[in-house]
Design a protein around this nucleic acid. Structure first.
Length: 857
RNA sequence: GCCCCAGUGGCGAAAUGGUAGACGCGGCAGACUCAAAAUCUGCUUUCUGCAAGGAAGUGCUGGUUCGAGUCCGGCCUGGGGCACCA
């Protein structure tokens, strides 16, 4: 029996698919469309096991949909702008463009090894001028729509990458890419009005029924909609210049207004800044506040700091009462109005502050559970439900009633109104970097900021740049910056900031519909393909890419460029590939390929192959170069074949969960490949004159059950279960050997089904098996096997029989047996009746096709 | 602190409220072999029993149900998200 050799077979089929161009899909294809997309990769230069899992998952779906008769759009591209290219330039002196395209070339070859059913004719990179030129056009359209604006703002500055970051790109006070502590800096920046779409983005979440709840929840929390009251406190006495209308505050608890004991403003509030001009104490205090870091630990332990400005405001409901105005370090200028009223009894931060500075604490919500009206707050603010008291006209109301009453009263007095506030901020898109899409704007001393004319696009990046100094080389370029103003013709300068790379990935899925279009998106093509039916990627983009893409798609819709508001109808977030870690006694990490394993008395040990030094087997963690717990996909392909690697990363865990890479596991997948192949061995044949016998029926039932189960598994993204069914089926098949003429026909059907069922998972193997069994054409063009529901059940059911919920015996019945018959059989069963002796049968529950439970007492 | 998710054999895991542990890994035993590798066959939750069988068992603890890994309440542990957001 010949062995299956993936090293010969796999390249052969990849070449055959490419030669026949089977995965190219036309926009005119009349079949129902299916758009499957995996998040496109950053071209780092090498693929890793995470890519293998991500793209194998998409490929399973793509190949399955093809077989089901869909016109499948399954494209690939490169998210090619970004910092690493500039870092390479800095460290190795290579040009970012050269570096990036070289990486793309090598990664393309590696990805092609995976045998993915991708339409490579649609490939593009976001750093192609043809792509970013269209993006510049798109930017200008959004500018015209009023969705782009420029303002000076306090921004997150990453001192290592020397650029600005959006709020979404700051994690625990650190840059998402560099890990550097983010600083606050005032800069003039370009912004996109994502907040205009805040409500719409929340409402849209409800329509995304094929998105994980987790991601929808994360987006909802990120947008952070809250309803409350925005109003002004009037100054008691003379108001500071410019603040004649008082201090504007925002609150979600207008019901606690009678418990207010101070008004607080942020250290960078305009009023604080104005007061500081004449008061060195305030200058010093504000500086103190800034000193506190932004890291998690520092915020956690930060003490409440405050300074009384000496100013007083009047309470809106009790005119005689005044409240002091404090500057407080825990108030954020970025949220609401940058000013609050403090109600210490019902807000923990206000309480901590009040206790420290001796401000009054007046409870106004009486807990519902029978507290006396003398209820007082100690060191813990009361935030639970109850009735309002100590509150004049609101006394006796519920919290909800009081909120409404307070809002009405303030609105009637013309002091403010009910307001909705979001945690979401506008998206800062300026980056002080070279390797990104140039912002198509020209700054003219006479005309101000002027959009670049469309016919001058693309505004291409210059290639002749130097990275001998930190900072943005576009700023230092001798000629690139200097242009004539498109309006007045005078001397002007280009904007040297480039767009955040998340802009690049916010519309690429629409470009795939027609990557050659003269407009950013080809409306007809996009209407043909969007929305993406199934999107697959990592959960780390839950509030980054996935929120931005939803926003941009809405903006494009309003601009009349696309028809859909939601770009991704279905989303699947896949788990990571993990691996054990190994370290020397010294703590130095060791690569798995240098290690020999042994098992002694059930304990696994690891040693350095070369020296025999004992190693420590550490935690199972995400594969990463820093921990050296990586296996190179190419080495695995070489050793076990691509199909085995694909099969293993899909088989061992549910796709949304992490999978642990193990050598044993991939060996098992390799064995499966070999065993499948053996079943298709043409050298072992049944004699031609063999006579059919009824055992074939049993095999046919197993075949149809397997088709049903595997189909369901793929539809429901339960690839691990589907693969388990295939293993099981193979075990069944071994009971009906090839040289047994009595089952030859049923076996032929079984093999035909098996080859097609494995084709999404192990496509090369499937093709080779298809040839061996004499299949017509290539299996990629073969239809998905249908199943006969009548055959997808057992010919005889084995029903367990319980007595009082304990399994006591089993009976055999025909699938459609009526209840009376089942009941009778169950009661008559010898194993069961032993347990019924001397007891009264009170009830017999028959669950058809499932179980019988006899209740006795 | 708030919100969300998950806890099942030695390990990865499977189970529309209906036989818990499918399938794979590992382990043990056997076949083949001079031997090893590869391959094949069987066993492999725990306790008890010669066996047939019996009992216990899905983090802990109550409950709903004829029946709970699955549903509900409380707790414990682990993971993720947000976090001085008014």
């Amino acid at each position: 029996m010949a062995r299956y050799n993936p090293k010969d077979v796999e390249p052969k089929w990849r070449a055959a698919w490419a030669d026949a161009d089977v995965f190219r899909v036309s926009n005119d294809d009349p079949r129902p469309k299916y758009y499957i997309l995996e998040m496109f990769p950053y071209p780092s230069g090498a693929i890793h096991m995470g890519h293998v899992r991500n793209y194998a998952m998409g490929d399973i779906v793509a190949r399955y949909r093809r077989a089901r008769g869909h016109a499948v759009l399954h494209p690939m591209g490169w998210d090619a702008f970004g910092m690493p290219a500039e870092n390479a330039a800095l460290e190795r002196g290579v040009n970012p463009k050269t570096w990036t395209y070289a990486n793309i070339a090598s990664m393309r070859e590696q990805l092609k090894l995976l045998g993915l059913s991708i339409d490579w004719s649609r490939e593009f990179a976001t750093c192609d001028p043809e792509y970013y030129g269209q993006q510049q056009k798109l930017f200008l359209r959004l500018l015209k729509r009023g969705l782009v604006y420029r303002k000076e703002a306090t921004v997150n500055w990453d001192p290592v990458d020397m650029t600005v970051l959006a709020n979404e790109q700051v994690e625990n006070g650190r840059g998402w890419r560099s890990g550097a502590l983010v600083e606050k800096k005032k800069l003039t920046q370009w912004f996109l009005r994502i907040t205009d779409y805040a409500d719409d983005l929340i409402e849209g979440l409800a329509t995304l029924d094929r998105w994980p709840d987790k991601v929808r929840l994360m987006q909802e929390n990120w947008i952070g909609r809250s309803t409350g009251l925005q109003f002004s406190f009037d100054f008691a006495g003379v108001a500071p210049a410019g603040f004649e209308s008082g201090i504007e505050v925002y609150t979600t608890r207008p019901d606690t207004l009678f418990g207010a004991s101070f008004v607080g403003i942020a250290p960078d509030h305009p009023l604080a800044e104005q007061l500081a001009a004449n008061d060195p104490k305030i200058v010093e205090f504000v500086a103190d506040c800034r000193r506190g870091g932004t890291s998690e630990a520092e915020i956690e332990g930060a003490e409440k700091l405050g300074l009384d400005t000496g100013l007083r405001v009047t309470h809106p409901f009790t005119p005689g009462q005044t409240l002091p105005v404090w500057i407080a370090n825990f108030i954020l200028m970025e949220y609401g109005t940058g000013a609050i009223f403090g109600c210490p009894a019902h807000d923990q931060r206000d309480l901590d502050f009040a206790r420290k500075y001796g401000l009054p604490v007046t409870p106004v919500v009486l807990p519902a559970d029978g507290h006396p009206a003398t209820f007082m707050v100690g060191s813990e603010a009361y935030t639970g439900p109850g009735r309002i008291f100590n509150s004049g006209f609101m006394d006796g109301m519920t919290i909800e009633q009081a909120k409404a009453a307070a809002v009405t009263r303030i609105e009637e007095a013309g002091k403010g109104k009910g307001a909705v506030v979001y945690r979401l901020r506008d998206w800062g898109i300026s980056r002080q970097r070279y390797w990104g899409c140039p912002i198509p704007i020209i700054h003219c001393k006479t005309c101000g900021t002027v959009p670049a004319p469309e016919d001058q696009l693309p505004i291409a990046l210059p290639d002749d740049v130097s990275f001998d100094r930190p900072g943005n080389p576009l700023l230092r370029h001798p000629t690139w910056r200097f242009v004539a103003c498109p309006t007045c013709g005078g001397a002007a300068e280009r904007e040297t900031d480039t767009l955040d790379t998340f802009v690049d990935s916010s519309w690429y899925f629409a470009r795939f519909a027609n990557p050659q279009a003269a407009e950013p998106v080809d409306r007809a093509a996009v209407d043909r393909w969007l929305p993406v039916d199934q999107y697959i990627g990592g959960v780390e983009h839950a509030v980054l890419h996935l929120l931005y893409a939803r926003f941009i798609t809405r903006a494009l819709k309003d601009e009349g460029m696309v028809s859909v508001a939601e770009p991704f109808a279905g989303l699947f977030t896949q788990g990571m590939v993990t691996h054990e870690t190994y370290a020397r006694q010294s703590g130095e990490w060791v690569e798995p390929s240098f290690i020999a394993f042994e098992t002694e008395g059930g304990i696994r040990r690891a040693r350095l192959t070369e020296t025999g030094e004992a190693l420590v087997i550490g935690d199972i963690e995400k594969m990463s170069k820093s921990k050296k717990n990586v296996v190179a996909p190419e080495d695995i392909f070489e050793q076990y074949g691509v199909d085995a690697a694909r099969l293993f990363v899909m088989s061992d865990s549910p796709p949304e969960r992490d999978v642990q890479w193990t050598t044993g596991g991939v060996e098992g997948a390799g064995r499966f490949v070999q065993r499948v192949w053996n079943e298709f061995d043409t050298e072992i044949q049944a004699p031609a004159d063999a006579v059919q016998d009824p055992r074939g029926d049993e095999l046919r039932r197993a075949t149809h059950k397997t088709i049903k189960a595997v189909t369901d598994s793929i539809e429901q993204f339960r690839f691990n279960s589907g693969i388990a069914r295939l293993y099981e089926f193979l075990n069944v098949l071994k009971g009906f050997p090839a040289n047994d003429g009595g089952v030859a026909v049923a076996r032929g059907e079984a093999l035909s089904a098996l080859a097609r069922l494995i084709s999404p998972f192990t496509p090369h193997l499937a093709e080779e098996c298809w040839v061996r069994m004499g299949g017509k054409g290539m299996i990629v063009d073969a239809p998905w096997p249908p199943f006969d529901p009548a055959l997808a059940t057992d010919s005889e059911l084995v029903l367990p029989v319980q007595v009082n919920g304990r399994r006591r015996g089993e009976i055999r019945v025909a699938p459609g047996a009526d209840e009376a018959e089942v009941r009778e059989k169950a009661l008559a069963d010898a194993d069961v009746s032993v347990h019924l002796e001397g007891l009264t049968v009170r009830k017999v529950i028959v669950v058809p096709g499932r179980i019988v439970n006899i209740v006795v007492g």
